[in-house]
């Protein structure tokens, strides 16, 4: 009886591990994007937006406004690639500065940066795929 129980527990454990491994391809991709994204963020974004995503006073908007990032999810690739001009409201504050363009970034790098930002600083949006970046960029470039 005891053996049977043990066997049952073991097979359940096996099943869990097996099921998890099925998920792991996607999971792995997310982890890869997030990790590379962190490095790219430190190189390209952190000077202005800071290591905590807090921005700088009224000069540089924070990346902690989860609602803003959710609402503008499809615009994020264009903002990073082409920069930003004009007034935006983030965290209830109005910012009207210039964000420089980073047009030498590859689509996959933009996807990694967005994956990092939208899953840090209180955000939790999951993977942002390279295909999504390419599609979003086509939309804003054709405008």
């Amino acid at each position: 009886m005891k053996n049977k129980l043990l066997l049952l527990a073991f097979s359940i454990a096996c099943a869990v591990v097996f099921l998890n491994s099925c998920q792991s391809d996607k999971e792995l991709e997310y982890i890869k994007y997030y990790t590379n994204g962190k490095l790219l963020y430190e190189e390209h974004c952190q000077n202005c937006h800071s290591s905590t995503g807090a921005g700088l006073s009224m000069l540089i908007p924070p990346l902690t406004d989860t609602l803003f990032l959710k609402k503008n999810r499809s615009k994020l690739p264009c903002i990073i690639k082409n920069g930003l001009n004009g007034s935006i409201t983030v965290s209830g504050r109005v910012f009207n500065e210039q964000m420089p363009a980073d047009d030498h970034l590859a689509d996959i790098e933009i996807a990694e940066i967005i994956t990092y930002i939208t899953n840090s600083f209180g955000n939790k949006q999951g993977l942002f795929s390279t295909a999504q970046v390419s599609a979003d960029l086509q939309k804003c470039n054709s405008r």
Partner: peptide
């Protein structure tokens, strides 16, 4: 003021 590189970091610290 239009410095995109180290100035924001410097003045974040200077604050």
């Amino acid at each position: 003021t239009r410095c995109p590189s180290i100035c924001p970091v410097m003045h974040r610290n200077m604050l």
